[in-house]
């Protein structure tokens, strides 16, 4: 069985994240880049299955600038067998449609039984890619899974939405996305880090996948405006001297909030 895990390099949320106001792209120099935590959890689901079943191959897939290679390698150090990195300057600023088409082409090229993604990245928070890939790959989508069971020919799990919890199952091949309810990822150890250096790491361009990034005949979504919001400023801060609760009540009443 071949499991492809989509991984994403994102700006670390522990720091300030910036967008370039000229291009609208993430300012990668402004903050530390890390492997998205939800990507790590997605990888953990695949690695846990690979550890409990025979003949499971885990492949990492990422579409990101060349500079993200080191971040993707972390996934190899954690235990994935190989990585496919689509790095092409022409894909910078790709909208969701182009991103999905490119990733789907790479997934087809690699071959797959199961694709695992995080439910929401911490930067774009789009949360639509798993469904888009499923449609393009003509397979079922089972998203937002908070538990996952994988067998030789199916995947099932629990899916909780705002107002209902359901049990779902799909035959393989399929695309699933997982939530942060799933376990934390294992840490790469020294042996893993050393082994990662020898693992296959393939770098592809859009052309390798038969994708034409500037194809104007395909409708796309474009950013038409960007502005930085002035940072929120602190208001009044008092130290409780026995009347803190009363003071809050006064603030609420004054501002017609209570």
């Amino acid at each position: 069985m071949k499991i492809i895990v989509l991984v994403k390099e994102v700006p670390d949320t522990y720091g300030e994240r910036k967008l370039d106001l000229e291009t609208g792209l993430a300012d990668r120099a402004a903050s530390e880049s890390v492997l998205d935590e939800i990507s790590e959890r997605a990888l953990e689901v695949a690695l846990a299955h690979a550890g409990s079943a025979d003949g499971v191959e885990v492949v990492l897939l990422s579409m990101a600038p060349e500079s993200a290679a080191a971040t993707i390698r972390k996934g190899l150090a954690m235990g994935a067998a190989s990585a496919v990195h689509i790095a092409d300057p022409a894909l910078a600023g790709a909208d969701l449609g182009l991103t999905a088409r490119t990733l789907a082409a790479a997934i087809r090229r690699t071959g797959f039984d199961l694709v695992i993604t995080g439910n929401l990245s911490t930067d774009g928070s789009g949360g639509v890619l798993a469904a888009m890939l499923a449609e393009l790959l003509e397979v079922p989508n089972a998203t937002a899974l908070s538990s996952v069971e994988i067998t030789a020919d199916s995947v099932s799990g629990t899916r909780s939405t705002d107002d209902r919890a359901m049990r779902v199952s799909a035959p393989l091949p399929a695309v699933i996305s997982i939530t942060e309810a799933l376990p934390d990822a294992r840490l790469p150890n020294f042996k893993g880090i050393m082994a990662a250096k020898k693992k296959p790491f393939e770098t592809l361009t859009a052309a390798d996948l038969g994708i034409e990034p500037q194809d104007l005949s395909v409708a796309s979504s474009i950013m038409t405006a960007i502005a930085e919001k002035p940072p929120r400023t602190a208001g009044v801060k008092i130290t409780d001297e026995g009347d803190g609760g009363t003071k809050i009540a006064e603030f609420l009443i004054e501002n017609r909030l209570a």
Binding site: V128, A131, M132, N141, A219
Partner: peptide, 24 residues
């Protein structure tokens, strides 16, 4: 709606019809 169900429907629909998608 940008709910879990809504995002899945929007994603598949946009991919099927090659329509651009704006999320959240």
């Amino acid at each position: 709606s940008n709910s879990i169900e809504g995002r899945d429907i929007a994603g598949r629909f946009a991919a099927r019809t090659s329509a651009p998608i704006a999320v959240d």
